[in-house]
Amino acid sequence: MNPQGTDPKLIDALNRASSLELFQLSAIIERMLVDPRRILAVRTNMNLGQTVRFLDWRDGQMRHGKVVAMKDTQVTLHEEGTRREWKLPYAAVEPPDPVSPPATASARAAPPQSMPSRGDFRCGEKVSFDDRYLQPQVGVVVRINQRTATVDTGNGHSWRVPFHMLRQVFDI
């Protein structure tokens, strides 16, 4: 029972490994797959509505799906053929080509959004951003600097965040 595209020598080596060695290898691989740098490598060129290839873990086949949502550690894809939704880790998605434009006509027709700048934010305003570990942070702007805003998250931490990474938060 050899998964498609897997080197038979690798399968043989894994079959000879002890359960403890396989568990250690599994733990190492799991840590590597959730590394924010790897997630960013896939996420950087990915857009909502874009068609990407992903691995179906059940049979090892590559499938095509449209990006419908992107979270911190997983992406939601709508498979074109079966109309099925998949919630997958970014590691299961083939990194998109950096030069390919978004697949949908609506994404191409939309005017380019301008990057937020210094003038878009005020002291006391509630904002959110993703930290370097891709964890969402919410806080209040306490200072406007030349290129960054100082944001107090209320848990004893202050962050200096570039304006292009900030999003305004509206309480409803």
Rank of each mutant, 00 (worst) to 15 (best):
E85R: 13
I29A: 10
M165T: 02
D152L: 08
Q137V: 05
S100M: 12
A17H: 10
L77W: 00
M70N: 06
A105S: 12
G49Y: 01
T76Y: 02
S117P: 00
T104W: 00
I172F: 08
D59S: 07
G119W: 12
D72G: 05
L166H: 06
G119E: 11
Q74N: 14
V99R: 14
S114F: 13
A105W: 12
T6I: 14
T51C: 14
R63N: 04
V141E: 06
T44A: 11
Q74P: 00
A69Y: 02
M1H: 07
E79G: 01
L77P: 02
L77M: 13
T51Q: 14
I29V: 12
K126S: 09
S158V: 12
E21W: 09
G60D: 08
K66Q: 12
A107D: 14
Q24F: 10
G60K: 13
G156Q: 07
S128I: 02
P36R: 13
Q168G: 09
R83G: 03
P111S: 13
D120I: 05
L20G: 09
H157A: 13
P101R: 15
L55I: 04
P89A: 05
P101D: 10
D12H: 02
R43H: 04
A103S: 15
L134W: 00
F170V: 15
F121W: 10
A13L: 12
L55N: 03
D130F: 10
R118I: 00
D97K: 13
R143T: 11
F129N: 01
A69S: 09
A41G: 02
S128G: 07
D131N: 09
I39D: 00
R53N: 04
G5S: 04
M70I: 11
M32W: 04
Q113K: 13
V52D: 03
R16L: 11
T153D: 06
R37T: 03
K9Y: 01
F170T: 15
L25S: 08
T44S: 14
M32T: 08
D7W: 00
R122Q: 08
G124A: 10
V169Y: 04
R63Y: 01
T150H: 11
N2V: 06
T6L: 14
G119T: 13
V93P: 01
I29C: 10
D7E: 03
P3C: 02
P116G: 04
V138N: 01
V127L: 07
N45V: 05
S117W: 00
A105K: 15
S18P: 14
R38H: 02
N15V: 11
V68G: 07
A41L: 03
S106V: 11
V34C: 09
G81T: 15
